[in-house]
Structure formats: C-alpha cells, structure tokens
Write a protein that binds this DNA or RNA. Structure first.
Ligand SMILES: [Zn+2]
Ligand SMILES: [Zn+2]
Ligand SMILES: [Zn+2]
Ligand SMILES: [Zn+2]
Lengths: 137, 137
DNA sequence: CTGATTTCGACAATCATTCTCATAAGGCCT
DNA sequence: AGGCCTTATGAGAATGATTGTCGAAATCAG
C-alpha cells in the first residue's frame, strides 16, 4: 500500500552542489556551475539545474526569481521555517527576515476577496554595504 | 538647458495595445498579442513587447514577474500610487491592495542591515472564486 | 553480483524575450 | 501640403535561460 516515496539519491554531484553552495549569496544555476567547474568538478550544467531544483524541493536550498526572471539559489539557513530575504541585487548577498504581521495580513486580504490556495512572495532587494562602498571609491 | 524629455509617441499600435488591455487580468505579452491579432489587429509581436514595456515605464500598465519567470501585464487601475496585487494564478484576475505598514517595515529592516536603494516585491497569488468553482463541478 | 531504477552528461530543443535593419509613421517646421 | 529628422514598426534572426533526449554510468535491493 505504501506508495514508496521515491526519495532522491544523494550522489557525488548532489554533494558537490551542496558543498559549493553557501548560505550567504544567491546565485544562478549557471553561476554555481561555473564555480563548480572552476574548482575542478566535472559536473554537467543540466545536472546542476536538476540538482538545485531537487534540493529546493527538499527545502535544502532557497530559490527566488530575480527581477529579470532568472532563478537564484542559495543554501537555506533556516530549516523548514517559512521566511523571506533582503537581498543585494549586485552581489546576491542576502539575510533572512521574517514578516510575522504580514503572514496574517495575507490571509485576511485573500479571504476578503474569496481567493483560496494563497501563497505569497515578499522580496526586499537593495545594495549591500560592501557593494555600495565599492560603487564609489 | 531643458533636456527635452524624449516622450514616447502615441502610435496606432500603442493605442491598440492600451485598448485591448483591461484593468482586470494580468496576461503575458504573447497573450495580449494573440488577442490583438484575434481582433483583427496586424500589430507585430515585438511591437507588443516594446509597447508594453514603454507603457509600464510610464506607469500606464502594471508589470509583474510570475513564478515561472514570465512578465505579466495589465492596465493599472490606480494612478502613480504604489501598490501591490492579489492575483489569480489560473486566470490572471487581480485586485489591487496596499500594505501600508509594510512600506515602513521594509525601510526599517533595510536600514538595520545597512542596505540602500531598497525596492520590494509583494505578490499574493491564489485561485479566484470563479476558477475555484470551475475547478470542481 | 544482478537486475531495476535513478541520475549523469553532452547536446539538441524550447520558449520568452531581444536585436537587426530596412521601411513606415509621427512631429514639427515652412 | 511638402520636406526633414527622429522614433516606431515588423519580419525574422539571434540570444539566453531552462528543459528534454537518450545512451552510459551510478546507486540500491535482494
Ligand atoms: Zn552586495
Ligand atoms: Zn511569508
Ligand atoms: Zn481565476
Ligand atoms: Zn509596497
């Protein structure tokens, strides 16, 4: 009866991806791939895409869609907990934030308009202190 | 001395685009294009892309990036005023909302982390009553 | 080990969006 | 209305991120 949850395998490539990911910067799949190759890995680009998606599904990594529509990933600091980010649009560095009041607000508004299956996206983007400094001198 | 603001021209195509856009549903450039052609317009796809962007820059239309990375447009109800949306992820129907408390919160958080040039994205997505009904019987 | 299943990796294929460039149209004179 | 300069259009090529294909390699049970 048990539908045998098809759990993903932790392969060498998956481990390499998890290892190269850091919990600081959001980067695109291609950027992570470049970095892996630079460090000597032979992992393929498609594998990085698939790996990142799989890891995101498992909640191991966070994924956000940038203003330009690219998907950016970084290793998740918090566990399963729901959270949002303040991200540097120059270097990708991000900090996790929560917006407790907003979570309720969202449901209240949704109910008011009879929308169901609500989800929400909250992204703060700006320029981090380092990038702001670099931008000048 | 006046830098002669290079204001965009209101061409037949721009007018057609504005006319076909409604203030109810968010649709992609391609979807609006299809609709225009269906109504007999001969406007080109690239023109629709350019027109929508131009109109978005002018604040005439709202643009949001969907979960899948596509950009969706609809005519803006409010004027210049900053606002956000609760959008149906099935049919695109959206209502404008504001989140007054959040505007301050965003700046407070940003300042706390010394991020500058802050902008934010808040999107509520769900399934509207109509689509929820259609989904069943 | 052995066979069933999943993942890999190279590369082709998609798909939204942008670019190119020759032609058409809008604005602004006279 | 006619002419001139600038911007917009349209058809199609080009781009760029992402996904699909498929034979080979890795993983896992038994
Ligand atoms: Zn930065
Ligand atoms: Zn939230
Ligand atoms: Zn709907
Ligand atoms: Zn806002």
């Amino acid at each position: 009866m048990t539908p045998t949850t098809p759990l993903p395998r932790m392969t060498r490539q998956r481990r390499e991806i998890l290892d190269v990911l850091d919990t600081r910067d959001f980067r695109s799949a291609q950027q992570w791939h470049e970095r892996l190759r630079a460090e000597g890995s032979t992992v393929g680009l498609a594998t990085v895409y698939r790996g990142l998606q799989a890891l995101a599904d498992q909640g191991e990594v966070d994924a956000v869609v940038s203003e330009s529509g690219e998907t950016l990933y970084r290793r998740c600091e918090a566990g399963e907990e729901h959270h949002h980010h303040l991200r540097c649009r120059v270097c990708g560095k991000a900090v996790e934030i929560d917006v407790p009041e907003f979570e309720d607000f969202a449901h209240r508004i949704a109910a008011q308009h009879s929308y169901v299956e609500i989800s929400h996206t909250i992204e703060l983007t700006g320029v981090c202190p380092d990038c702001a400094a670099a931008d000048k001198g």
